[in-house]
Design a protein around this nucleic acid. Structure first.
Ligand SMILES: Cc1cc2nc3c(=O)[nH]c(=O)nc-3n(C[C@H](O)[C@H](O)[C@H](O)COP(=O)(O)OP(=O)(O)OC[C@H]3O[C@@H](n4cnc5c(N)ncnc54)[C@H](O)[C@@H]3O)c2cc1C
Length: 624
DNA sequence: AGGAACGTTGACGGT
DNA sequence: GACCGTCAACGTTCC
């Protein structure tokens, strides 16, 4: 009998893996577990070292389980799946290709392309796939919602809680006895074997990382990485370790063992500044690549609710803030990403406001590399780059700052940066949340702007997050920790941190740009209601561009130059610190935190005072 | 799950 | 005990 390829894509687990069970039921021992390192995703523009290492840890864990319990191993292929999968189907005498569905349109397209290749070559191989990445089958949710995805969380909640059947119970991982596999002839059992090209690659540092990318045929110039980045990448301290084993352990520690915590969980009350330990579960990296089953998570929460009811007698928190609702957000956004055309771009996306964002590379870089001069923003972005995870409300803060709050940079560029750095990067969730934060889609109260100073103060008045992730500020007095440019020079000297030398001036004056951006948002929104955005024409004109975005998975890979790229060019540092401390009691702090200013500085070349610094700061160098 | 200004309320302690 | 200033906490409104 011919065999089956079981293709792991997401769903990097043996528990609750319906497709895997189906493969074993249909082809017995001859099920070949495969993973494909696809350069379309595994490349430095889209995947940073931390996420790559996380992925490889997940693969190693699968490999280990397959070896120790199932007499098999993970077979890692490299290249374009539409090429390498049909090749191996042919080479290994395979007549079943089995996998768990991926919801993203570009992945669906790839799968269709493979089916087309098989059909064209008159292959006898049949393709079997099952849903499993989400709690409910997206097709089922659509069916019970008149064929359309809900567009608000409230309607999604009604769908989940009032109309949908309870989700399928998670199924256990196959036992060793139930699943004993064999390998194709050319695949050695041990990866120590000479010339084993199927093993999980070892990537410990940037050198290995570049070598791997080259082996996938990634163009050399995409692999350049500067020395500072290399050092930071090598020293990365990812917040969690990858693998199904770790995922299951974490679920029991963070969820199963804490029923009262789970039942009283309210997302807005969790602190974005907490990092040791963080205030939410950090199960997202595992959910993103399926090393934990969302249904296992779902029923773990339900069990907690039940235990809480019996023990504490009070109700659990409700959607949209409860822990269960966090899974609903994932479910909701995944469904939207699957169903709404051009979800990965502004242009051609019917739920996305058309806003004339800039694509200022210098501002983008300042933000991504922690050179904004706003300690909270720089601290969160450092946490993101080094640990691969940040709290949801920290994501709010930095995403708002990059887009409508301060820098007016396109949300797609922020989305791409998150894609690179987040361990939990997920196409649908990332796009949806960036639209949310930039007030482009789902959320429209654009006047709700996060302050990079007031917001972190609420949960971290001492600035411990900043002191940890931006150590150059560790001795800055509490009073100035979020706005060190206001510290008198004597204080800066004492703290060993001179603003403009050891730590940059802020790239913008928050209040000034916030107000200017509010006007731009009003204008952009006004154009929609005035009908000045002509969907028929605009979409027709831009749709080819948007199509390109979708084809390239919606991530990076395309050049779209907005007419509004007015902020580019090199900036010079001209702002200077004040020399004397302001009298705490009598002088109101001006600049960043004062009442709306009426005196707008006219001459950006004049000597900086607090009053006119806003305009000058806009020109602060970004080559810090 | 925004922030700031401004207004109201009520606790507290001093006169 | 009435009266008053102060202040924090909370509510409302606007952008
Ligand atoms: C701009 C921006 C980009 C984001 N990009 C991603 C992304 O690429 N991948 C990703 O998984 N999450 C993303 N999120 C959502 C959210 O911030 C993370 O899912 C969450 O912080 C993960 O931490 P946790 O597992 O501790 O969350 P918990 O609070 O413990 O929640 C449990 C699970 O619910 C899901 N969840 C929670 N919040 C959301 C949400 N807002 N939307 C969708 N699902 C949610 C996650 O799978 C999470 O693991 C983004 C949010 C913002 C504001």
């Amino acid at each position: 009998m011919p065999g089956a390829i079981f293709w792991f894509r997401k769903g990097l687990r043996l528990h609750d893996n319906k497709a895997l069970i189906a493969a074993v039921e249909s082809r017995g021992k001859k099920v070949y577990p495969v993973y494909v390192l696809d350069p379309k995703f595994v490349n430095p523009k889209q995947m940073g070292l931390n996420r790559l290492r996380f992925l490889l840890e997940c693969l190693l864990d699968l490999d280990y389980s397959l070896r120790t319990k199932h007499n098999s191993r993970l077979i890692v292929l490299r290249g374009d799946p539409t090429v390498v999968i049909p090749e191996q189907i042919e080479a290994w005498d395979v007549d079943r290709l089995v996998y768990e569905d991926e919801p993203e349109p570009h992945n669906v397209e790839r799968d269709e392309a493979i089916k087309a290749v098989l059909k064209e070559s008159n292959s006898a191989c049949l393709v079997y796939c099952t849903p499993g990445h989400t709690i409910w089958d997206p097709k089922y949710l659509l069916k019970i919602n008149n064929g359309k995805p809900p567009l608000t969380m409230q309607s999604f909640t009604t769908l989940a809680e009032k109309k949908a059947d309870p989700p399928a119970r998670p199924i256990n991982a196959p036992t060793a006895e139930a699943m004993q596999l064999m390998l194709p002839r050319d695949v050695p059992e041990t990866d120590k074997a000479e010339g084993d090209m199927y093993s999980v690659p070892v990537v410990e540092n940037v050198k290995d990382f570049v070598a791997l990318y080259s082996s996938l045929g990634v163009n050399g110039d995409q692999c350049t990485i500067d020395e500072a980045d290399e050092k930071e990448n090598n020293a990365g301290t990812p917040i969690v370790k990858g693998g199904e084993t770790e995922a299951l352990k974490r679920l029991s520690i963070k969820v199963n063992n804490r029923h009262t915590w789970v039942a009283t969980f309210a997302k807005p009350d969790t602190a974005p500044t907490a990092f040791d330990p963080p205030s939410t579960t950090i199960l997202s990296p595992y959910l993103a690549n399926g090393s934990i089953s969302p249904r296992l998570f779902y029923y773990a929460i339900l069990d907690c609710y039940e235990k809480n009811r019996k023990e504490n007698g009070h109700a659990h928190t409700k959607s949209p803030t409860s822990l269960m609702a966090q899974l609903y957000w994932r479910e909701f956004f995944t469904l939207c990403g699957r169903e709404l055309p051009h979800f990965g771009a502004m242009v051609g996306n019917s739920i996305c406001k058309q806003i004339p964002w800039s694509r200022d590379m210098a501002l983008l870089r300042a933000w991504e590399k922690s050179h904004t001069g706003f300690p909270w923003i720089d601290s969160v972005m450092t946490q993101l780059r080094t640990t691969g995870w940040i709290h949801h409300l920290a994501r709010h803060s930095v995403a708002c700052f990059l887009t409508r709050g301060d820098l007016w940079v396109h949300w797609e560029m922020g989305r791409d940066a998150f894609e690179r750095h987040l361990l939990d990067a997920d196409w649908s969730l990332n796009n949806a949340n960036w639209m949310w934060l930039s007030a482009s889609g789902f959320f429209h109260q654009f006047y709700r702007v996060y302050s990079p100073i007031a917001w972190p103060k609420k949960t971290d008045p001492n600035g411990d997050h900043v002191r940890h992730f931006v150590p150059v500020l560790k001795d800055m007095p509490k009073k100035y920790i979020y706005e060190p440019w206001l510290a008198p020079l004597t204080v800066q000297k004492k703290a060993n941190c001179i603003i403009g030398k050891d730590y940059p001036y802020p790239v913008v004056d928050h209040n000034t740009v916030k107000n200017a951006n509010l006007t731009k948002m009003k204008d952009a929104y006004g154009r929609h209601s005035d009908g000045k955005i002509n969907w028929e024409e605009d979409v027709a004109q831009n749709v080819s561009n948007a199509d390109k975005v979708i084809q390239t998975t919606g991530i990076g890979e395309y050049e779209y130059v907005s007419k509004d790229t007015h902020n580019s060019g090199k900036r010079k540092a001209v702002a200077a610190p004040s020399e004397v401390d302001s009298d705490e009691n009598t002088v109101k702090v001006e600049g960043q935190s004062s009442a709306p200013k009426k005196d707008k500085a006219k001459d950006i070349n004049s000597k900086p005072t607090r009053g006119n610094r806003s305009k000058i700061l806009r020109q602060t160098t970004l080559e810090f």
